[in-house]
Amino acid sequence: MRVNKPEYREAKGFIAEVVRTNRRKSADIRVEEGAVTVVVPANTPAERIDDLLTAKRRWIKEKIALHQEMAPASSKRYVSGEAFSYLGRNYRLKVEKGPFAPVKLVQGRLVVSVPQGSQQPHMIRNALIRWYKRQAELKLKEKVARWAPQVGVEPTGVAIKTFKSRWGSCTAKGELQFNWQIMMAPNRMVDYVVVHELCHLIRHDHSPEFWGQVGRILPDYEQSRDWLKHNGHRVSAL
């Protein structure tokens, strides 16, 4: 459980997101999708966090480099004026030079502040991923709360994940898991994915009965399913 809003620490060549929690007694550094997160006990001093990042700097840089080598080639340059899709609408990126500040949607622009240097595109990409994940956490929970009563189910929880080839999943324990990249698709596609996973709480297959449940809530679901099938690779490119 987070007890404060995330904070950030600048290091040489990367930005680390700090998550303070009462559930940990020791620090844990993670590098996921090239983004660095350090989870620490709630009262950990900032100086202690800086010392941890310095001590693990080589390992962190190796993890980041490995991700960059394995990541699919992107046409994005992460420069001002470039368009990024959010719920089907394009928003222009505005890059400001200075101390790191996370992405904010301001007057129709995605604004981010990062230090100048060779790692700037990497930092901007990670800042955008963090922003999309936060939006996913907020919006998808709202949509689950909206659609669940109509489907007639109660999921045990909602989690945001990174999936390579699917938009969502329903666990055996009733937790719904969603790929944060769905936030780049039009709003009705997001609704379809939410309803799809909610219906899996009734049927854990793709039988005619399952699709009947989806169709009961979204009569035109086939349009959304086909749209994602043919356009999903484009909206998820970051």
Rank of each mutant, 00 (worst) to 15 (best):
M123N: 02
Q116F: 09
L87P: 00
P155E: 01
I60L: 02
A136E: 02
V106L: 15
A101W: 11
R89P: 00
A46N: 05
E137R: 14
P115H: 14
S75D: 07
R48M: 13
S75I: 13
N43R: 15
A101V: 12
K141A: 11
T44D: 08
V40G: 05
I160H: 00
N43Q: 12
A55P: 06
W59E: 11
R134W: 05
V39N: 11
A159V: 10
Q120G: 09
T54E: 14
K97L: 12
K141F: 01
K63Q: 07
K143E: 11
T44F: 07
V153C: 06
W147E: 01
P99M: 04
L138R: 08
P102C: 09
A148K: 08
T44R: 04
V153Q: 00
K139H: 12
W147C: 00
V153D: 00
K133Q: 07
Q120A: 14
D51N: 11
D50R: 13
W131S: 02
V95M: 08
T37V: 13
E137W: 09
L140N: 04
N126T: 05
S113M: 14
P121D: 13
D50P: 06
V112E: 06
V153R: 01
L53A: 08
Y91A: 10
T37N: 13
G152V: 04
